[in-house]
Design a protein around this nucleic acid. Structure first.
Lengths: 330, 330
DNA sequence: TTGTAGGCGTTATCAG
DNA sequence: CTGATAACGCCTACAA
């Protein structure tokens, strides 16, 4: 069933049918009704590919993320999808994992699907070595790119994130002011925000005359057990009274470690998370964490994107300020 | 840059370019190289819409879910996306929420985008009143439909799920055999699996001569606080020594309630979750929960789908058996 | 091995 | 208000 079939049966031309479908007002009520009745009767719906070919768009946004099962990412995705949906856009999802080549392939793949824009969700898409970001600059020549939770400067690239440096520094200062003498930092994957956080903690420590070097930063293997193992190994290398984590899962894992060691939190060990996910509300004790405003960020991404696709002038960088959520873990 | 541009510059016809692009072997090495060089030079990639129009497919699978930020759903989605990706399919995601009309609209929307198949992810897509499932039967006339975690019988509809009834009954029996006298059940949204679980608990209780009626089944409002409130209200209505939950989040929330009331788990109150999500591993005590094999299910969905699209004969119903994961909450 | 030409189903631009 | 027709860009018989 295509537009010709409808046109034939209605006794009109395909142009008229098209007009009716697309709500042109230059159609008489009688013919409009005739056509709409047939559309209803046959449940006709125009072929999306043909339409896409003609219009040059299928109103689809490509969304890349490293891992949709990540708590923060999936929540961000929920908001983004919802927002895009409201504007009539669909989301083509591509989970790339953390490998650089796979990310590059993911971008290429979505571009080959003629998406209208690309959202790079999560701070794993900005590499420290800027030449590794070349594929993003290249992609930006084809469609506008929206970086969520990382900042990258370039034409047709828009960044929406939180002030992770500021809030982490504030949190570190708060910890140092209230008794922390020897913090360590845990992360699972390198990322833009991760680097910001490490820098913030380093700066806060320096200002208080406390040592914080690379030796106090630990990369954890996968899983809760990976984190626990890392902490046990760390014990042998240095002493620590505070564990600041790149995300809530690492923090929750640290709580499990504390339990195993029979440390009480926060008396024996202080722990902080990040992202203010549901995990921070279900642990014992509740986690002190950072609310990085996933909903605001998501809304900003969608709004910015839609404006950009309407060729309006928009800001290349939007930064929200995060909040410290006080749990019972510090 | 389109196929004509490439053809012109290469001094060949578009047919030849097309052959090269699509890896036909009936092209001489020299012309192949000439074309590929230009493809590389201009980074040419065929227009996906035109291709889709001609071939009748863009190798896209529509995936509907109620809420991608749900822990179980997002994990399932991660596996499904990954599997589809490996087979060269892309995932068009649509989060519908729990409202019936929105689900129906979601299906219609994805169908209008000419997806090759539809995955209905999560047990919220099968309504008790079968006439409410009519939209699914209708959709199945257009594309094959894959129900994940719920079972629906119909032409071109394929169901992949776990034996939620069996495992829940087993869990309930285990509880009843080890001291539980007055269980209650908590859920957040009605669903196929939810109904299975209630039935299983009811049957297990009846067999032990224990009362379990509708008065022991509670619908919780949103959030941890919603669950806590529900439990506090329940206290006034009846007594209970065990809280069986429709998912881990409700179980984790119940632990928070227990903490507030200064109940120790499992001595004063026993709690069980469902889905074996990360939550069950980060609470104190660890949750006893059900592993409903998200990875197996996801793999089966993808494999079944791909076979079906290759017109192979496949089973309409695949059921995995779930496992009880022993935590410390019972 | 290569080229020609038709078809995929719309939308949009002109005429009328 | 309506219709004829040209794009849109690709794939693929069929011919050469």
């Amino acid at each position: 069933m295509n537009i010709y079939d409808i046109a034939r049966e209605a006794g009109v031309s395909i142009a008229t049918v098209s007009r009716v479908i697309n709500g042109s007002n230059k159609v008489s009520e009688s013919t409009k009704k005739k056509v709409l009745d047939l559309v209803e009767k046959y449940q006709y719906s125009p072929n999306a590919f043909a339409r896409g070919l003609g219009l040059g768009t299928m109103k689809t946004i490509g969304v890349l993320c490293a891992d949709i099962s990540n708590l923060y990412i999936s929540e961000a995705m929920a908001h983004i999808e919802h927002g895009l949906h409201d504007y009539g856009f669909n989301s083509l999802l591509c989970c790339t994992g953390y490998d650089h080549q796979d990310k590059e392939n993911g971008v290429k793949l979505l571009l080959s699907r003629n998406v209208d824009a690309l959202i790079l969700l999560g701070s794993h898409y900005t590499e420290q070595d800027d030449s590794a970001n070349e594929y993003i600059y290249q992609a930006a020549k084809t469609v506008p790119i929206f970086m969520v939770d990382s900042v990258l400067h370039g034409e047709n690239i828009y960044s929406i994130a939180c002030d992770d440096y500021d809030i982490t520094k504030l949190l570190a200062q708060k910890l140092l002011d209230s008794g922390t003498k020897s913090p360590i930092f845990l992360y699972r994957h390198d990322s833009y925000t991760c680097r910001q956080k490490i820098k913030a903690i380093t700066d806060a420590c320096r200002e208080k005359g406390i040592a914080f070097g690379d030796d106090r930063v630990f990369l954890c293997p996968v899983g809760i057990s990976g984190c626990v193992k890392t902490l046990k190994k760390a014990e042998g290398l240095l002493s620590f009274d505070t564990v600041m984590c790149d995300n809530d899962l690492l923090a929750a894992s640290t709580l499990q470690y504390a339990q195993e060691k029979d440390f009480s939190v926060p008396e024996d060990l202080r722990v902080t998370g990040y992202d203010f996910t549901i995990l921070s509300l279900t642990t014992t004790p509740l986690l002190t964490t950072i609310d990085n405003k996933v909903e605001h960020v998501a809304r900003a991404v969608v709004d910015t994107l839609v404006l950009r696709l309407n060729n309006e002038i928009i800001s290349q960088k939007t930064i929200f300020s995060a909040d410290i959520i006080s749990g019972r873990s510090i």
